[in-house]
Design a protein around this nucleic acid. Structure first.
Lengths: 125, 125
DNA sequence: TAGTTAATGCAACATTGTTGCAAAAGTAAT
DNA sequence: ATTACTTTTGCAACAATGTTGCATTAACTA
């Protein structure tokens, strides 16, 4: 019966992501924490927050992995929304209300969606 | 006036990607070439093929970069199609005819699309 | 065929992410 | 508060992927 434990690192990282309006990369989190904990610990905390359904991962168009709070997953866990990736300020935002529609060929079974739109955000355009 | 040169490595890599029905990663290309050229040369050839508009890059949901032939870009260069990423056989396919529709909030200016659907392909489902 | 310069190979390095293990810290029972 | 148990952490080492500088090789041009 393993039970999760509340640690300083986990609390700080969770608050950081939840209070951020944009998705954060590992290196961005590391900079914000200023040596509060080890690189490896950040990876492990993010892993736990993923399992708990608190955050979700986004692979940006440049390959950088960003972590974002699941603020629309309270009822049921789903990530069928579009992510916007600003090419100027490099910020990745979850557009929670934008759900795309499309028609797939037969026999393709979709399990998730991973939609990212590069471009210019309202602040940069 | 710098002009591109036809080399064995470039010809081989280009033919490999064009003849493949699925997108190929750097390591997959390297294995196929069996020591024909250096790792670094593969990166540089891919860079040139990108600039020439022969191929395009796809960042898969697991972060692996795949390279695919632009076979629908002959007239105008666009990649507004969906990519399918099979979770079983790990193959990434361009679904050239599938163009999604969606409504963005105001002031967002989209320059590209990067849509990938993880799931099971016809062969694996 | 000789000269020019693009392309290559090699070494070194940076970044990102993973794993094993001993030490530290959180939790629950006494 | 102290103890015992187990999760979490820090550290070191490693792997994969991608980049850069520089000397050498090879493709094109005249």
């Amino acid at each position: 019966m393993k039970s999760a434990r509340t640690t300083t690192a986990k609390t700080e990282i969770q608050e950081l992501i939840i209070s951020s309006s944009v998705a954060l990369s590992h290196s961005e989190i590391q900079k914000s924490l200023e040596g509060l904990c080890d690189r490896v610990s950040i990876y492990r905390v993010l892993e736990r927050l993923m399992e708990e359904g608190v955050i979700h991962k986004i692979v940006n168009v440049d390959g950088v992995v960003k972590n974002a709070w699941c603020h629309s997953c309270s009822a049921k866990h789903c990530h069928n929304h579009i992510h916007f990736s600003c090419q100027k300020c490099k910020v990745v935002t979850c557009l929670d209300n934008v759900e795309p529609s499309f028609k797939l060929p037969k026999n393709y079974k979709v399990s998730e969606m991973n939609f990212t739109l590069p471009g210019l955000c309202p602040q940069c355009s």
